[in-house]
Nucleic acid binder design. Sequence first.
DNA 1: CGCACCTTTGACAGCCGTCAACTAATGTGG
DNA 2: CCACATTAGTTGACGGCTGTCAAAGGTGCG
Lengths: 242, 242
Amino acid sequence: MVGEKIYTMADMLWHRSELSAGLVCFEPLPHSDPTRGEHCNLQSEKHPFVRGPRRYQTDDFLYDEGDITRHIYLLTSGMVRRCRVLANGRRQILSFSLPGDIFSMTLHHRHSASAEAVTNMSVMFVERRRLLSLADSDSGVAQALLEVMMRDHDDMQEHMLSLTRSAESRLARFLLRYSVRLQCPPQLSLPMTLRDIADHLGLTLETVCRTLNGMKCSGVIERAGPRQISLRDRSALECLAE
Amino acid sequence: MVGEKIYTMADMLWHRSELSAGLVCFEPLPHSDPTRGEHCNLQSEKHPFVRGPRRYQTDDFLYDEGDITRHIYLLTSGMVRRCRVLANGRRQILSFSLPGDIFSMTLHHRHSASAEAVTNMSVMFVERRRLLSLADSDSGVAQALLEVMMRDHDDMQEHMLSLTRSAESRLARFLLRYSVRLQCPPQLSLPMTLRDIADHLGLTLETVCRTLNGMKCSGVIERAGPRQISLRDRSALECLAE
DNA sequence: CGCACCTTTGACAGCCGTCAACTAATGTGG
DNA sequence: CCACATTAGTTGACGGCTGTCAAAGGTGCG
């Protein structure tokens, strides 16, 4: 039943593969496992509307804003950002996806944002119409997709609540959230640039840089490199995140 | 199939009622119809986990932040706001719900925000566990809920994209969006206070007031009263919204 | 009438965006 | 191996948008 203990989209599809039509066969691994996604073993012969994994290089486009929404994507390795570019030239990053995440689930006929490779990455894709019509007949699939959407919904809501806060609070929340997604390792190695982070949080890269240095000076975090961050004082960080 | 032409949650439940277990029997009406929701006719005897409509007065709480998520709500008349209060005392309004909207669909065991009556209103509620387990066996219900979540997801994403913009852009987008939800009437009569709007858009009520007056001075909108707004120049408004 | 509450308007300050210059890291070709 | 280009990150100066504080209308309701 929905909400039982299926924690990632990959888990879900995998779970579903046992109960329902065997949509995909995917061995779930924790995000922190660097080989995650490599073990992906989709039965493309049996389900020709599930394809991949396909590889992309850093900064490649998976699709562009305005493209027809033909597929739904399951990231198996690397990182993806979903972007929208405004008339004034500013870019907004709606989300960063990690292995196991599904993205591009929408009702719209066209993508409202592009998807780009933050790092080298690989992805499975599923034909949208077929998946939705499968969900029509197979309640297991529909329920699994429902769970994905609910999780995504909850996540996005939290992010929304970040965007009205101070730069320091936004960054603290971002770091904590990212750490949790990676199963709370002591150190974070951010694959995206400061500019990416800024565009995700509605800040400028200068503000991100300054704020990170501020947090370093106050001893909340350490910075080995620009994007090598260790959360030195998690409770202080949670305090800033409030 | 998902995405076909089911436009509101009420439509969906109504649609479902024909195809699946007859979850509720609800006659869908456009948002702009002031009697919407009054025609609600739930078969509570047949489906004891669907209850209502229950009435609330302005500023009543439907539930509080931290309460157990026992129900999912279908608004049948009036308006609801979902709020979270921060440690510093500031309030954030995540969404305003209109008749036909469903809210409180989450995976979490407890509500992450409270729900309060903006106006006198009435609501149907459905036992969450039973609805989800019904979705488990009935793909029609699961698919209908999936569609609700996808629509909500798309909406929330648009709102997220508002929050990093200027006060003028946020307000323009808010007015346009609200107008669309009401089927684009020439005039808007906002039921929520300026303070509510401010807390929804991540602004202060002073900024909302000043910005609205600025838009009035430049002739984009007219204001009969503080909350009686007519969109005088929609294309100019869309330009501000960019 | 008087008391809430909502809205309006003004003065002022601060956070953060903008612009600019500089450093560091990486890659490319000679 | 070095010169050079390119991109990412850092730091400083400055200004504007918007938050904060304060006080004065409005409006509705008891």
